[in-house]
């Protein structure tokens, strides 16, 4: 049995059941309804499931991950001493925008393993950067109040705190 997934642009992706099982939303939509309704929603190839928030490029990338993990369990949150396989790290890469899109899509599609991997990818990109560098990388605005800046100076042990402790 296979299922057709339709991306935001309308592109269609035909996936097998083991691959679709990795996508929580699709699994629930296609097979999970069987438990509640007595029949599955998508029972033949002709039916498609529209994933309105996922673009074609991201969906194809996600399906690569699902294809890789169709026969084995990915790392999920809660595993102690997590160490991601090399394939995972090569898959997620270091392109921050791409990782963010994958992260949003994994959250939307309910894929915990990919969500964790994307979080790991972002954490790796943040590694070694100071706050200013993180802001520049992600386009974040430092919107601290004066009071908070003083607090941070105290945390950092800057000379200003020693000269003006108030």
């Amino acid at each position: 049995m296979s299922i057709t997934l339709i991306s935001k642009e309308g592109a269609q992706f035909l996936v097998s059941k083991p691959v679709a099982d990795r996508i929580g939303v699709v699994r629930d939509c296609a097979y999970g309804a069987d438990f509640w309704l007595g029949y599955a929603v998508a029972t033949d190839d002709s039916m498609g499931i529209t994933l309105a928030n996922v673009t074609s490029s991201i969906l194809s990338k996600i399906l690569v991950w699902c294809e890789h993990y169709k026969d084995m369990e990915p790392l999920v949150d809660g595993d102690s001493n997590m160490e991601f396989p090399e394939w995972d790290m090569a898959y997620i890469g270091h392109d921050m925008n791409q990782i963010l899109f994958v992260l949003e899509a994994a959250d939307y599609l309910h894929i915990p393993g990919l969500l964790l991997l994307a979080c790991k990818g972002i954490a790796d990109v943040l590694d070694g950067r100071n706050p200013r560098g993180i802001c520049d990388l992600l386009g974040i605005v430092m919107d601290f109040s004066h009071r908070q800046e003083v607090d941070m100076d105290k945390e950092n042990g800057y000379w200003r705190w020693f000269l003006h402790p108030t």
Partner: peptide, 12 residues
Amino acid sequence: AFKLSQVCERWR
């Protein structure tokens, strides 16, 4: 941990 708390108000 301190660095992450000094990025923006939301993160802090």
